[in-house]
């Protein structure tokens, strides 16, 4: 990791326990993200990767430890609108058109109408939904809905993009196409991305670094830097180095992700 620029996200000794059932979701997590990094969090269910994402976004308060985003406490960063978020489901507002869904965070930031319209226009182009501004979410396919959701998260140009299994509910082909689109958007905007996923190949394909987590208690089992050159393309998935890295992540998951449930074991 580059030492020059101050990290966008800095996590120091973060522990999160849930009082119900005395679950330790996260234990002593340390992690720092440099500007422009694309970091995937991967691990089996219950490893706390989604919890970690929410701690970064100040949606869950850690029991111990500190999180800073853009050099500010996470709470301050949230109220300053320093990050955009994409969930597994698009979470679009049915009663709003596509354009108004994308414009929602801009409304919250108090942008005027003309400025909003111009930005929404740009975002629609970015996610290739040019002709769909006046459609309602239910008129779109799942993949298109998720592109709207990404456009909404990026509309106010946050330095940080948090993505919680954004393509998990999509079919394989749509997922791979959106992977490519996401990379192209990321390279255009230069934002920092934290990407939670279940899929090893998705994590390796997208990321500049893969953070492998293990469950019960949730902790970082290891980190795999991904040295595949950008821009990545369909052929990247066929490169020998890609397979080596996939194997490396898989081995890390297998050896360090003890206490896997049988179906999680099978999925690896």
């Amino acid at each position: 990791m580059s030492d020059a620029a101050p990290p966008v996200v800095r996590i120091d000794g973060v522990t999160k326990t849930f009082p119900q059932g005395n679950v330790t979701a996260l234990q002593e997590i340390d992690l720092a993200l440099a500007p422009g990094e694309f970091v995937s969090l991967i691990g089996p269910s219950g490893c706390g990767k989604s919890t970690l994402l929410r701690v970064i976004g100040d949606l869950i308060e850690p029991t111990a430890g500190t999180v800073t985003v853009n050099g500010k406490p996470a709470r301050q960063a949230r109220s300053d609108g320093d990050y955009g978020i994409v969930f597994q489901d698009a979470v679009l507002f049915d009663w709003r058109t596509v354009a108004k869904n994308i414009g929602l965070p801009l409304e919250m930031l108090g942008w005027d109408r003309a400025k909003r319209r111009a930005r929404v226009e740009e975002m629609l182009e970015l996610v290739e939904l040019g002709g769909f501004a006046d459609h309602h979410p239910w008129q779109l396919s799942g993949g298109m809905q998720q592109r709207v959701s990404i456009a909404r998260a990026l509309a106010f140009e946050p330095a940080l993009l948090l993505m919680d299994e954004p393509f998990g509910a999509l079919d394989e082909m749509t997922r791979e196409r959106l992977n490519l689109e996401l990379l192209s958007i990321w390279q255009q905007l230069g934002s920092t991305v934290v990407f939670v996923t279940h899929s090893i190949s998705e994590a390796v394909f997208l990321s500049s670094r893969v953070v492998v987590m293990s469950p019960r208690p949730g902790r970082i089992a290891g980190t795999v830097p991904i040295d595949l050159p950008y821009p990545r393309a369909v052929e990247t998935r066929e490169a020998p180095r890609f397979f080596e890295l996939v194997t490396e992540v898989r081995e890390l998951l297998r050896t360090r992700g003890e206490h896997l449930l049988p179906e999680e074991e099978a999925a690896l």
Partner: peptide
């Protein structure tokens, strides 16, 4: 939707 409420929280709404 709880996730929509969460989304609004990310905007510090």
């Amino acid at each position: 939707d709880p996730r929509a409420l969460e989304l609004m929280r990310t905007y510090a709404a």
